[in-house]
Simulated scan of single mutants.
Amino acid sequence: MTDTLQLTVLIPLLNEDESLPELHDWITRVATEQNYTYEIMFIDDGSTDNSWEVIERLASVDAHVRAIRFNRNYGKTAALQTGFLAARGQVVITMDADLQDSPDEIPELYRMITQDGYDLVSGWKQKRYDPLSKTLPTKLFNGVSRWISGVQLHDFNCGLKAYKQKVVKSIAPTLYGDMHRNLPIVANWNGFRKIGEKVVQHRARKYGTTKFGLERFINGFLDVLVIAFVHRFSKRPMHLFGGLGTLSFFVGTVLTTYLIGEKLYNIAHQIRYRNVTDNPLFFLALVAIILGVQLFLTGFLGEMLVRQNLNKTADFQVAERIGFLDNISV
Protein backbone atom coordinates (compact mmCIF):
# COMPACT_ATOMS: atom_id res chain seq x y z
CA MET A 1 0.00 0.00 0.00
CA THR A 2 1.43 3.39 -0.98
CA ASP A 3 1.78 6.29 1.40
CA THR A 4 -0.55 8.40 -0.75
CA LEU A 5 -3.98 6.91 -1.35
CA GLN A 6 -6.96 8.06 -3.35
CA LEU A 7 -9.42 7.73 -0.50
CA THR A 8 -9.64 7.71 3.27
CA VAL A 9 -12.97 6.73 4.81
CA LEU A 10 -12.84 8.13 8.33
CA ILE A 11 -15.28 6.71 10.88
CA PRO A 12 -15.48 8.08 14.45
CA LEU A 13 -17.39 5.75 16.70
CA LEU A 14 -18.60 5.12 20.22
CA ASN A 15 -20.10 1.76 21.19
CA GLU A 16 -21.09 0.57 17.72
CA ASP A 17 -19.78 -3.02 17.78
CA GLU A 18 -22.89 -4.45 16.09
CA SER A 19 -22.74 -2.25 13.01
CA LEU A 20 -18.97 -2.25 12.32
CA PRO A 21 -18.63 -5.54 10.38
CA GLU A 22 -21.53 -4.66 8.06
CA LEU A 23 -20.22 -1.12 7.56
CA HIS A 24 -16.70 -2.38 6.83
CA ASP A 25 -17.93 -4.89 4.26
CA TRP A 26 -20.13 -2.31 2.58
CA ILE A 27 -17.30 0.24 2.27
CA THR A 28 -14.94 -2.46 1.03
CA ARG A 29 -17.38 -3.53 -1.68
CA VAL A 30 -17.90 0.04 -2.91
CA ALA A 31 -14.17 0.88 -2.87
CA THR A 32 -13.29 -2.36 -4.68
CA GLU A 33 -15.91 -1.81 -7.36
CA GLN A 34 -14.49 1.68 -7.98
CA ASN A 35 -10.86 0.44 -7.97
CA TYR A 36 -9.84 3.00 -5.35
CA THR A 37 -6.61 2.81 -3.44
CA TYR A 38 -8.04 3.37 0.00
CA GLU A 39 -7.94 3.02 3.74
CA ILE A 40 -10.71 2.63 6.28
CA MET A 41 -9.82 4.45 9.47
CA PHE A 42 -11.78 3.79 12.65
CA ILE A 43 -11.38 6.22 15.57
CA ASP A 44 -12.73 4.54 18.69
CA ASP A 45 -13.72 7.36 21.03
CA GLY A 46 -13.41 5.37 24.26
CA SER A 47 -16.01 2.65 23.58
CA THR A 48 -16.99 0.47 26.52
CA ASP A 49 -18.50 -2.34 24.43
CA ASN A 50 -16.66 -4.73 22.09
CA SER A 51 -16.02 -2.18 19.34
CA TRP A 52 -12.22 -2.35 19.62
CA GLU A 53 -12.20 -6.14 19.56
CA VAL A 54 -14.32 -6.06 16.41
CA ILE A 55 -11.93 -3.56 14.81
CA GLU A 56 -8.96 -5.76 15.70
CA ARG A 57 -10.62 -8.72 13.98
CA LEU A 58 -11.33 -6.64 10.89
CA ALA A 59 -7.74 -5.36 10.78
CA SER A 60 -6.36 -8.88 11.08
CA VAL A 61 -7.98 -9.87 7.78
CA ASP A 62 -7.93 -6.55 5.93
CA ALA A 63 -4.76 -4.46 5.53
CA HIS A 64 -6.84 -1.46 4.48
CA VAL A 65 -8.06 -1.02 8.06
CA ARG A 66 -6.25 1.40 10.35
CA ALA A 67 -7.54 2.35 13.76
CA ILE A 68 -6.93 4.47 16.82
CA ARG A 69 -8.52 3.95 20.23
CA PHE A 70 -8.76 6.73 22.79
CA ASN A 71 -8.19 6.01 26.45
CA ARG A 72 -11.58 7.56 27.25
CA ASN A 73 -14.38 9.43 25.54
CA TYR A 74 -13.15 12.81 24.24
CA GLY A 75 -15.97 13.58 21.81
CA LYS A 76 -16.52 13.48 18.08
CA THR A 77 -14.45 16.57 17.34
CA ALA A 78 -11.38 15.02 18.96
CA ALA A 79 -11.91 11.82 16.99
CA LEU A 80 -12.23 13.68 13.69
CA GLN A 81 -9.23 15.89 14.46
CA THR A 82 -7.04 12.86 15.16
CA GLY A 83 -8.30 11.11 12.05
CA PHE A 84 -7.72 14.18 9.87
CA LEU A 85 -4.12 14.41 11.01
CA ALA A 86 -3.54 10.71 10.28
CA ALA A 87 -5.43 10.45 6.98
CA ARG A 88 -3.39 9.60 3.88
CA GLY A 89 -6.11 9.79 1.23
CA GLN A 90 -6.26 12.60 -1.30
CA VAL A 91 -9.99 12.64 -0.58
CA VAL A 92 -11.22 12.17 2.99
CA ILE A 93 -14.81 11.07 3.49
CA THR A 94 -16.27 11.04 6.98
CA MET A 95 -19.32 9.02 7.96
CA ASP A 96 -20.99 7.84 11.13
CA ALA A 97 -20.64 4.24 12.26
CA ASP A 98 -24.34 3.60 12.90
CA LEU A 99 -25.20 2.70 9.26
CA GLN A 100 -27.43 5.77 8.90
CA ASP A 101 -24.97 7.03 6.28
CA SER A 102 -24.83 4.97 3.09
CA PRO A 103 -21.38 4.05 1.67
CA ASP A 104 -23.06 3.97 -1.75
CA GLU A 105 -22.75 7.79 -1.66
CA ILE A 106 -18.94 7.54 -1.71
CA PRO A 107 -18.35 7.45 -5.50
CA GLU A 108 -20.37 10.60 -6.20
CA LEU A 109 -18.83 12.47 -3.26
CA TYR A 110 -15.38 11.42 -4.51
CA ARG A 111 -16.22 12.60 -8.03
CA MET A 112 -17.44 16.00 -6.81
CA ILE A 113 -14.10 16.56 -5.05
CA THR A 114 -11.78 15.23 -7.76
CA GLN A 115 -13.64 16.29 -10.91
CA ASP A 116 -15.92 19.18 -9.96
CA GLY A 117 -13.16 20.76 -7.89
CA TYR A 118 -15.01 21.24 -4.61
CA ASP A 119 -12.93 21.75 -1.48
CA LEU A 120 -15.66 20.25 0.68
CA VAL A 121 -18.97 18.55 -0.06
CA SER A 122 -21.50 18.24 2.75
CA GLY A 123 -24.30 15.71 2.79
CA TRP A 124 -27.88 16.94 3.05
CA LYS A 125 -30.33 14.51 4.61
CA GLN A 126 -33.33 16.05 2.91
CA LYS A 127 -35.63 13.24 4.04
CA ARG A 128 -34.94 12.28 7.62
CA TYR A 129 -36.13 9.39 9.75
CA ASP A 130 -36.01 11.33 13.00
CA PRO A 131 -38.75 12.44 15.41
CA LEU A 132 -40.10 15.99 15.31
CA SER A 133 -38.26 16.78 18.54
CA LYS A 134 -35.02 16.32 16.62
CA THR A 135 -35.88 17.70 13.17
CA LEU A 136 -37.21 21.07 14.39
CA PRO A 137 -34.11 21.97 16.46
CA THR A 138 -32.00 20.81 13.51
CA LYS A 139 -33.73 23.24 11.14
CA LEU A 140 -33.38 26.07 13.64
CA PHE A 141 -29.68 25.30 14.16
CA ASN A 142 -29.04 25.18 10.42
CA GLY A 143 -30.89 28.47 9.87
CA VAL A 144 -28.88 30.28 12.55
CA SER A 145 -25.64 28.77 11.23
CA ARG A 146 -26.38 30.04 7.70
CA TRP A 147 -27.23 33.49 9.01
CA ILE A 148 -24.11 33.86 11.16
CA SER A 149 -21.60 32.23 8.82
CA GLY A 150 -22.86 33.09 5.37
CA VAL A 151 -22.26 29.45 4.31
CA GLN A 152 -25.41 28.36 2.50
CA LEU A 153 -25.89 24.72 3.47
CA HIS A 154 -29.09 22.98 4.47
CA ASP A 155 -27.52 20.44 6.83
CA PHE A 156 -24.38 21.45 8.71
CA ASN A 157 -24.57 18.54 11.13
CA CYS A 158 -24.62 15.70 8.61
CA GLY A 159 -21.74 13.34 9.39
CA LEU A 160 -21.33 12.34 5.74
CA LYS A 161 -18.89 14.81 4.20
CA ALA A 162 -16.05 14.74 1.69
CA TYR A 163 -12.90 16.88 1.85
CA LYS A 164 -9.77 17.50 -0.12
CA GLN A 165 -6.79 16.36 1.89
CA LYS A 166 -5.39 19.89 2.12
CA VAL A 167 -8.63 21.05 3.75
CA VAL A 168 -8.52 18.53 6.60
CA LYS A 169 -4.80 19.11 7.17
CA SER A 170 -5.43 22.85 7.36
CA ILE A 171 -8.41 22.86 9.70
CA ALA A 172 -7.44 19.96 11.98
CA PRO A 173 -5.04 21.97 14.22
CA THR A 174 -7.74 24.60 14.83
CA LEU A 175 -10.46 22.24 16.06
CA TYR A 176 -11.55 21.90 19.68
CA GLY A 177 -14.70 21.49 21.75
CA ASP A 178 -17.66 20.38 19.62
CA MET A 179 -16.72 22.06 16.37
CA HIS A 180 -17.47 18.96 14.29
CA ARG A 181 -20.96 20.40 13.71
CA ASN A 182 -19.49 23.45 12.02
CA LEU A 183 -16.65 22.08 9.91
CA PRO A 184 -17.92 23.75 6.69
CA ILE A 185 -17.84 27.09 8.50
CA VAL A 186 -14.32 26.47 9.80
CA ALA A 187 -13.18 25.46 6.30
CA ASN A 188 -14.79 28.51 4.71
CA TRP A 189 -13.17 30.88 7.16
CA ASN A 190 -9.83 29.18 6.53
CA GLY A 191 -10.07 30.20 2.88
CA PHE A 192 -11.69 27.13 1.31
CA ARG A 193 -14.62 28.79 -0.43
CA LYS A 194 -15.80 26.13 -2.88
CA ILE A 195 -18.21 24.24 -0.64
CA GLY A 196 -20.88 22.06 -2.20
CA GLU A 197 -23.82 20.05 -1.03
CA LYS A 198 -25.27 16.70 -2.07
CA VAL A 199 -28.61 15.19 -1.15
CA VAL A 200 -27.84 11.89 0.57
CA GLN A 201 -29.89 9.02 1.87
CA HIS A 202 -30.73 8.99 5.55
CA ARG A 203 -31.23 5.44 6.75
CA ALA A 204 -33.03 4.46 9.93
CA ARG A 205 -30.74 3.29 12.72
CA LYS A 206 -30.37 -0.49 12.57
CA TYR A 207 -28.48 -1.17 15.82
CA GLY A 208 -28.20 0.51 19.21
CA THR A 209 -29.35 3.99 20.20
CA THR A 210 -28.24 7.52 19.43
CA LYS A 211 -25.35 8.91 21.49
CA PHE A 212 -26.53 12.53 21.25
CA GLY A 213 -29.27 14.43 23.08
CA LEU A 214 -31.00 17.75 22.57
CA GLU A 215 -28.16 19.53 24.37
CA ARG A 216 -26.07 19.16 21.21
CA PHE A 217 -28.15 21.87 19.53
CA ILE A 218 -27.53 24.34 22.36
CA ASN A 219 -23.83 23.52 22.19
CA GLY A 220 -23.99 23.89 18.43
CA PHE A 221 -25.39 27.43 18.66
CA LEU A 222 -22.71 28.41 21.15
CA ASP A 223 -20.00 26.87 18.98
CA VAL A 224 -21.14 28.88 15.95
CA LEU A 225 -20.83 32.07 18.01
CA VAL A 226 -17.40 31.01 19.27
CA ILE A 227 -16.19 30.25 15.74
CA ALA A 228 -17.47 33.62 14.51
CA PHE A 229 -15.74 35.43 17.36
CA VAL A 230 -12.47 33.54 17.02
CA HIS A 231 -12.38 33.97 13.25
CA ARG A 232 -12.96 37.70 13.34
CA PHE A 233 -11.12 38.77 16.46
CA SER A 234 -8.64 36.10 17.62
CA LYS A 235 -5.77 37.87 15.86
CA ARG A 236 -6.99 41.38 16.64
CA PRO A 237 -8.80 41.45 20.01
CA MET A 238 -8.20 45.19 20.33
CA HIS A 239 -10.56 45.74 17.41
CA LEU A 240 -13.42 44.31 19.46
CA PHE A 241 -12.62 45.14 23.07
CA GLY A 242 -10.84 48.39 22.25
CA GLY A 243 -13.70 49.48 20.01
CA LEU A 244 -16.35 48.69 22.62
CA GLY A 245 -14.22 50.29 25.33
CA THR A 246 -13.74 53.46 23.31
CA LEU A 247 -17.48 53.68 22.64
CA SER A 248 -18.34 53.15 26.31
CA PHE A 249 -15.73 55.69 27.45
CA PHE A 250 -17.05 58.20 24.89
CA VAL A 251 -20.63 57.80 26.15
CA GLY A 252 -19.48 58.25 29.75
CA THR A 253 -17.50 61.35 28.80
CA VAL A 254 -20.46 62.90 26.97
CA LEU A 255 -22.74 62.30 29.96
CA THR A 256 -20.15 63.74 32.35
CA THR A 257 -19.72 66.82 30.15
CA TYR A 258 -23.48 67.26 30.06
CA LEU A 259 -23.77 67.07 33.86
CA ILE A 260 -20.93 69.55 34.38
CA GLY A 261 -22.37 71.90 31.77
CA GLU A 262 -25.80 71.71 33.35
CA LYS A 263 -24.40 72.57 36.78
CA LEU A 264 -22.35 75.51 35.46
CA TYR A 265 -25.39 76.83 33.57
CA ASN A 266 -27.54 76.66 36.70
CA ILE A 267 -24.89 78.44 38.74
CA ALA A 268 -24.48 81.17 36.13
CA HIS A 269 -28.22 81.79 35.97
CA GLN A 270 -28.73 81.38 39.71
CA ILE A 271 -31.09 78.47 39.15
CA ARG A 272 -31.66 76.11 42.00
CA TYR A 273 -30.06 72.77 41.22
CA ARG A 274 -29.56 69.41 42.84
CA ASN A 275 -26.22 67.78 43.51
CA VAL A 276 -24.66 65.98 40.56
CA THR A 277 -24.54 62.77 42.57
CA ASP A 278 -28.31 62.90 42.96
CA ASN A 279 -28.75 62.61 39.20
CA PRO A 280 -29.01 58.99 37.90
CA LEU A 281 -27.02 60.05 34.84
CA PHE A 282 -23.99 60.51 37.10
CA PHE A 283 -23.89 56.82 37.95
CA LEU A 284 -24.53 55.83 34.34
CA ALA A 285 -21.62 58.00 33.24
CA LEU A 286 -19.38 56.57 35.97
CA VAL A 287 -20.18 52.98 34.98
CA ALA A 288 -19.66 53.75 31.28
CA ILE A 289 -16.21 55.28 31.90
CA ILE A 290 -15.05 52.45 34.17
CA LEU A 291 -16.38 49.82 31.75
CA GLY A 292 -14.69 51.58 28.86
CA VAL A 293 -11.32 51.54 30.60
CA GLN A 294 -11.71 47.86 31.50
CA LEU A 295 -12.66 46.85 27.96
CA PHE A 296 -9.76 48.80 26.51
CA LEU A 297 -7.32 47.12 28.90
CA THR A 298 -8.84 43.73 28.05
CA GLY A 299 -8.15 44.39 24.39
CA PHE A 300 -4.60 45.48 25.18
CA LEU A 301 -3.93 42.33 27.21
CA GLY A 302 -5.45 40.24 24.43
CA GLU A 303 -3.06 41.79 21.92
CA MET A 304 -0.13 40.93 24.18
CA LEU A 305 -1.27 37.29 24.40
CA VAL A 306 -1.66 37.08 20.64
CA ARG A 307 1.86 38.40 20.20
CA GLN A 308 3.20 35.54 22.28
CA ASN A 309 1.81 33.10 19.67
CA LEU A 310 1.23 30.28 22.12
CA ASN A 311 0.97 26.90 20.43
CA LYS A 312 -1.15 24.34 22.24
CA THR A 313 -0.94 20.69 21.34
CA ALA A 314 -3.77 18.19 21.56
CA ASP A 315 -3.76 16.12 24.73
CA PHE A 316 -5.81 13.14 23.61
CA GLN A 317 -4.38 10.01 25.19
CA VAL A 318 -4.25 7.21 22.63
CA ALA A 319 -4.46 3.76 24.18
CA GLU A 320 -3.81 1.58 21.11
CA ARG A 321 -3.19 1.90 17.37
CA ILE A 322 -3.41 -0.38 14.37
CA GLY A 323 -1.53 0.23 11.14
CA PHE A 324 0.81 2.94 12.45
CA LEU A 325 4.57 2.76 12.82
CA ASP A 326 5.69 3.44 16.41
CA ASN A 327 7.98 6.27 15.36
CA ILE A 328 5.34 8.10 13.32
CA SER A 329 2.87 10.34 15.12
CA VAL A 330 -0.78 10.39 14.20
Results as ranks from 00 to 15, higher is better:
residue 170 S to T: 05
residue 167 V to Q: 01
residue 251 V to I: 15
residue 184 P to S: 10
residue 202 H to W: 02
residue 194 K to D: 08
residue 194 K to I: 05
residue 157 N to S: 05
residue 248 S to L: 14
residue 200 V to K: 01
residue 188 N to C: 08
residue 161 K to R: 15
residue 257 T to P: 00
residue 240 L to E: 03
residue 169 K to M: 08
residue 176 Y to C: 06
residue 212 F to H: 07
residue 192 F to A: 07
residue 226 V to P: 00
residue 180 H to P: 00
residue 247 L to W: 03
residue 156 F to H: 06
residue 215 E to L: 05
residue 171 I to M: 08
residue 229 F to S: 12
residue 222 L to H: 11
residue 213 G to C: 10
residue 226 V to T: 09
residue 200 V to R: 00
residue 181 R to P: 00
residue 162 A to T: 02
residue 165 Q to D: 14
residue 210 T to L: 09
residue 179 M to S: 04
residue 241 F to R: 09
residue 190 N to S: 13
residue 228 A to M: 13
residue 158 C to A: 12
residue 247 L to R: 08
residue 163 Y to A: 03
residue 212 F to V: 15
residue 193 R to D: 10
residue 236 R to P: 00
residue 168 V to Y: 07
residue 166 K to W: 06
residue 262 E to M: 06
residue 260 I to G: 08
residue 194 K to E: 07
residue 207 Y to K: 11
residue 264 L to A: 11
residue 234 S to M: 14
residue 156 F to M: 08
residue 185 I to F: 11
residue 193 R to K: 14
residue 191 G to F: 05
residue 160 L to A: 01
residue 237 P to E: 09
residue 160 L to H: 00
residue 181 R to F: 14
residue 252 G to K: 01
residue 190 N to H: 15
residue 186 V to H: 07
residue 235 K to T: 06
residue 181 R to T: 02
residue 227 I to G: 07
residue 215 E to D: 13
residue 187 A to D: 07
residue 209 T to Q: 14
residue 240 L to I: 10
residue 156 F to P: 00
residue 203 R to S: 04
residue 163 Y to E: 01
residue 171 I to G: 06
residue 154 H to L: 14
residue 220 G to K: 02
residue 206 K to E: 11
residue 249 F to M: 15
